[in-house]
Structures are given as structure tokens and as C-alpha cells.
Design a protein around this nucleic acid. Structure first.
Lengths: 114, 114
DNA sequence: ACTCCATACCTCGTCACGCATAGTATGTTG
DNA sequence: CAACATACTATGCGTGACGAGGTATGGAGT
């Protein structure tokens, strides 16, 4: 399991990325993170739901209730602002990964950034 | 510049890694992060110093004052606990990088973890 | 029928941490 | 002799993860 502080940086991007494909509901996201990342980025409901409310409040995602099936579900999808945010966050993650490699933390190479 | 939440996960490991090579003092670390990561992981003094105090309080690093030169400097070095923590954090970072790749955030591949 | 687990949502309180801001003190440079 | 660089310290605000606890319904086993 991953540390809390690492999750702070990784959580939102992961959610935005998943919602970038198709609309999904909360419980589904919890399971998707568990299976798609083999538990590495797994987060509980008490982490996910507030995170979703936060992303919605900031306008990166929007929700709609669907009452068709057995239980009511709240589906979320990305807004255009959300796509921008996802693109920006992804760039930041690539940057950090680059820096981590430069320091020799991710890979053993440890070269100064040229 | 990277977001503060991302820094929360990246900051401590980066410092531990730098101190893994040789003992360094605060101001030197600020500059090392700036140059070694091309500003990607740059942090100000008000972020670094409290971070150092925190790592020392947890026993991952120890400090000693050196009065030889022009100004007094406080040098920090890793403890054996610090090495363990560095090893553990590095593993977590590799895990997160793996998960980010699986989600297609770092690289475009986007494969499920096999 | 009844129990238990899975599904699906929501809420509150605690704790940690980044960093802006501000302060102190000395060496170096124009 | 005024700026600027070096070097460390202290404080307060805002943000967010997550444990713990709560509600309600569907399905599976006995």
C-alpha cells in the first residue's frame, strides 16, 4: 500500500484519467483502482467520495443520477476543464518521474538532467 | 513548477536520496534540488527546513554544526533508519510509477497490470 | 423467514504537511 | 555603504487523506 502523502498527488489524476474514458460511478471507481493498478493505488470510499465532491466543486467533473438498475448510482464524467486539468497533471507527473529518474530514485541510472 | 500536493510525496525521498551520497547542509540542498532536477523539484527554504527538522525528529537524519568556514553550517547525514526509509520510499515510488503507467498517465501504453 | 455479505451512497474529526511571510545575522560585491 | 547572497529559524493558514461510523437495498445461502 502507498503512503498517504503520495496518494495526495496520485489520487486526483488517476480518477480524472479513468473518467477520461467513460462516465463511471463512485463504487465502480474504487474497484477499478483496485483491479487496474493491482491494489497499488487503491483508495477507500472515505477518500474517494470527498475527492469526487472536490473535483466537482472545482468544475473538473459533473454528476448525474441514474435510477435504471437495482440501485441508484451517481455517474461522473469529465468536463472540458477536467480534460485540461488532466493534461496538466499528466505533464506534471511526467516531469516528476523525470526528476525522480535524474536523482536515481526510480531507476538506478542517476544522471543530471542534460 | 509542480503542485504542492505532488511535492508532499516527492520532497522527503528526494532529500533522503541526496543525503544518501554525502552529508549536506540546508542551503546546499535547496540549490542541489534546483540544479539537479532542473527546477522541477525546486523547493523554498520554508519548505526545506521544516522538512529537515521533521526527518531529524523521526530519526532518519542527524545534524552537526560546522563552524570552519565563513558562516556556520548545519550538516545533515542519513542514519541507518534513514536508509531503510529511503529504500522503502523508493520502492513506493517505483510502484506508483508502475501504476501511473498502467493507467496511461506517464506513458501512453495503458495496459492492465499483468 | 432470516441472516449475512455486497452494493452504493454520505459525513465528521483528526493529523500532517507545503509554503507564504517574516525575522536574524554575516560575508561579498559594486 | 548600500545591495545582494548566504544561512538558519519561526509562525500561521489552507488543503486533503482516511479511519470510523451511518443509511439503505439486493441477492445468496440455510
Amino acid at each position: 500500500m502507498i503512503d498517504r502523502e503520495l496518494m495526495r498527488g496520485a489520487g486526483p489524476v488517476a480518477i480524472l484519467k479513468l473518467l477520461g474514458h467513460r462516465e463511471m460511478y463512485g463504487y465502480e471507481l474504487v474497484e477499478a483502482l483496485e483491479t487496474r493498478t493491482r491494489g497499488l493505488l487503491a483508495m477507500g470510499q472515505s477518500t474517494l467520495y470527498p475527492l469526487l465532491y472536490n473535483l466537482e466543486a472545482k468544475g473538473y467533473i459533473v454528476s448525474r443520477w441514474v435510477e435504471d438498475g437495482a440501485r441508484p448510482r451517481k455517474y461522473y464524467r469529465l468536463t472540458s476543464d477536467g480534460r485540461k486539468r488532466l493534461a496538466d497533471d499528466s505533464r506534471q507527473w511526467r516531469d516528476v518521474a523525470t526528476a525522480m529518474e535524474a536523482l536515481g530514485i526510480i531507476n538506478g541510472a542517476e544522471v543530471a538532467l542534460a
